[in-house]
């Protein structure tokens, strides 16, 4: 369809308006539309990331000389090939099965591949440091009793460092 104004270029902007309850549609080319002040404010913005996703996934797969496409997650049986087509992972274990290509992909998408947000509470993340803290405190008590103050100072620093780490794990 040619532009209704200049009749030279292809009409790319289809502007509709209600005039006296009638829908009036104008088909204009980009230049004429701009001159008349019609524009869609969202037309130039980049597509959402998810639209680019599948091409980004396939790209990171082909980079690793094709071997990746034969990878399959042992838990949910999703192949990397399918992931490259759908852009959706199959289960939590896929992140283990495809750790390296995913780390590359996540860096491309987010500009980082290291989580700095809220930590998961409970479980091993908190239990292990807690056990370590109890062990160090026990040792510290013994060091003080034995008047080995150099060792006690060292242990006190270790406890403090561990508590800071624990704080980071449990903080939002």
């Amino acid at each position: 369809m040619l532009c209704e104004e200049c009749r030279k270029q292809e009409a790319t902007v289809h502007f509709s308006q209600m005039v006296n309850n009638q829908r009036v549609v104008m088909n204009l080319c980009g230049t004429c539309a701009k001159r008349r002040g019609f524009s869609n404010p969202l037309k130039n913005i980049p597509f959402p990331l998810s639209d680019f996703l599948t091409s980004m996934v396939s790209e990171s797969a082909t980079k690793v000389d094709g071997q990746l496409t034969e990878l399959t997650c042992p838990v949910c049986k999703l192949s990397y090939d399918t992931f490259a087509k759908t852009g959706r992972l199959g289960c939590g274990n896929c992140f283990e099965a495809y750790r390296q290509p995913l780390a590359d992909l996540l860096r491309k998408i987010h500009g980082s591949n290291l989580h700095r947000g809220k930590r998961l509470r409970g479980g091993a993340l908190v239990m292990e440091p807690l056990k370590e803290e109890a062990r160090l405190k026990d040792e510290l008590k013994k060091a003080i009793e034995a008047e080995d103050f150099e060792r006690a100072a060292q242990l006190r620093d270790m406890v403090k460092e561990l508590q800071e780490k624990l704080q980071a794990v449990t903080d939002v």
Binding site: S50, V57, R88, G92, E96, H115, G123
Partner: peptide
Amino acid sequence: DDDLANSLEFDYDTDFGFLTSCPTNVGT
């Protein structure tokens, strides 16, 4: 989220954070 995490064990990785179906949502 905290309330639900009391009953449900969420998929989480120490490097990647919370795991999601679409890579664009991973982390937080």
